[in-house]
């Protein structure tokens, strides 16, 4: 385990979280990024607050257990939002890789030591894990959106009509789930 590096990270956690959050909201246009950073009310700013919360959870896991459920809980709200915001999968997940850059810059000096560099390598693998999970969640959300797109209207009206017996049995118009 990368203990020395982890304790370094824990000491600078607040700085890292804040830098990571800033770089994450850079995916949005300038005026939007300003809003996402400044509005602290979670109901007035669900994107900003879910993103911040997600990042905190991921930080916990980065230096902790790497529990799959917790990683998912951290990533899901962020990716779920991005999947409906016309961000490409690459743009939606870039923020995860940005963490490597942030850490590397922050610990530039420390990482010159061979042992620290090795520890950093382990940590990068953890970040890659986040990214892969992030892609999966993003794709899952996209599939859900397409499914809702295709079936919503037919499901609701078709079902009502069918219950009422106003649709002939065995028609092939039946919506697929």
């Amino acid at each position: 385990m990368a203990e020395a590096l982890i304790s370094l990270i824990q000491k600078k956690r607040a700085t890292i979280v804040s830098k990571w959050f800033d770089s994450t909201v850079q995916a949005y246009p300038h005026d939007t990024a300003v809003f996402l950073k400044s509005q602290k009310d979670q109901f007035a700013n669900p994107v900003g607050s879910s993103t911040r919360q997600g990042i905190e959870t991921l930080m916990d896991q980065l230096v902790g257990e790497m529990a799959p459920d917790a990683i998912k809980a951290g990533l899901d709200p962020i990716m779920r939002i991005r999947a409906v915001q016309s961000l490409s999968p690459a743009r939606a997940t870039t923020f995860i890789f940005a963490l490597k850059q942030i850490l590397r810059e922050l610990f530039r000096k420390e990482l010159q030591e061979a042992d620290m560099a090795r520890q950093f390598f382990d940590l990068e693998a953890r970040i890659d894990r986040f990214a892969l999970d992030g892609f999966d969640i993003y794709m899952g959300c996209r599939e859900r959106v397409l499914d809702l797109k295709a079936n919503e209207m037919r499901n609701r009206t078709f079902r009502a009509f069918k219950r009422a017996g106003l649709v002939a049995e065995g028609t092939d118009n039946e919506p697929k789930e």
Binding site: P29, T32, F35, L36, Q39, A44, N45, P46, Q85
Partner: peptide
């Protein structure tokens, strides 16, 4: 400016 659900949700200024 930041009171519209479409701005809040889409992030499009």
């Amino acid at each position: 400016a930041d009171k519209c659900h479409y701005f809040i949700g889409t992030g499009d200024p």
